[in-house]
Design a protein around this nucleic acid. Sequence first.
DNA 1: CAAATAATGTTATAGTATAACATTGCTTAA
DNA 2: TTAAGCAATGTTATACTATAACATTATTTG
Lengths: 153, 153
Amino acid sequence: MWQRHQHSQCIKEALSKAEQVCIDHQCRLTPIRKKVLELIWKSHKPIKAYDLLAQLSSEDFIEKPPTVYRALEFLIENNLIHRIESQNAYIGCNHDHENLDSKFLICEQCNQVEELSEPKINKTLSEVSKKQGFTPNMVNIEVHGTCSQCAQN
Amino acid sequence: MWQRHQHSQCIKEALSKAEQVCIDHQCRLTPIRKKVLELIWKSHKPIKAYDLLAQLSSEDFIEKPPTVYRALEFLIENNLIHRIESQNAYIGCNHDHENLDSKFLICEQCNQVEELSEPKINKTLSEVSKKQGFTPNMVNIEVHGTCSQCAQN
DNA sequence: CAAATAATGTTATAGTATAACATTGCTTAA
DNA sequence: TTAAGCAATGTTATACTATAACATTATTTG
């Protein structure tokens, strides 16, 4: 994964995608929000709020928790990042989401995370839900295990 | 749900199931562990660690966080409860789990949680994972939405 | 430009969880 | 049965995660 691509490239793409999303959504990718998004992408693994905080404060940005949490909230609302619930951590999103749903493969060894697109699962979940009279609004799936890289080692 | 059943009955069942599980697993359902499990079942919704703590301290039990967190850890390891990641909360489990996997329908209105058994989803997830060379170890699915009761209101 | 709204600054505190070491209790094998 | 070893709990302190509430600054819009 990260060995195989020009990482600076995917950060650039993420940022320019974010610009476009904000135009579409009529909201503003302010310097702080942009910086937080950039740091998240730079990490390329789930990164924690207080780690972001530390990195921000080592640069010229304000370093209080609310600053970071507000930026995270904004980015999540616009589907530019996701929260990995089992880790209290945040990761960049380059998928196009029609619905509020996210699915992750999380490697317990290297901590690398891969986001899945798998409509079949959503469909099955919808069916099962409906059987129970339940109307889904948001789905989060976190699969923990071992990635192929780590399985080789 | 909770309107329709004798709740005291399901607590009893949960506790006696727990006794059996601990015999099978050769571990001990100590008074603290039992009390925590009982409180979780009494709640009948996801309950938070510090709420358990408060309830314990109002009775004759020791009221320090590690006490509760250790009991929770034990109960989770033995599949007697699950953690709802999106809520930092804990709920009783009366399913038989072969693997480490859990799936929940979480009502955003009443906060009631239903655990799902749906092997098809596990199978699909396994297939998708395998395609990526990923070996799953544990799966957690949390579906947020509206339950049938609340949809009527 | 003024008013309204959005975003950020700031202080304080709430909420969640674990580390580390001491003590007590249970088990088991000599 | 009793000492050794291990499991469980007690205890103190602290780390980590997140938000409330109000002040200030920046941007947008009539």
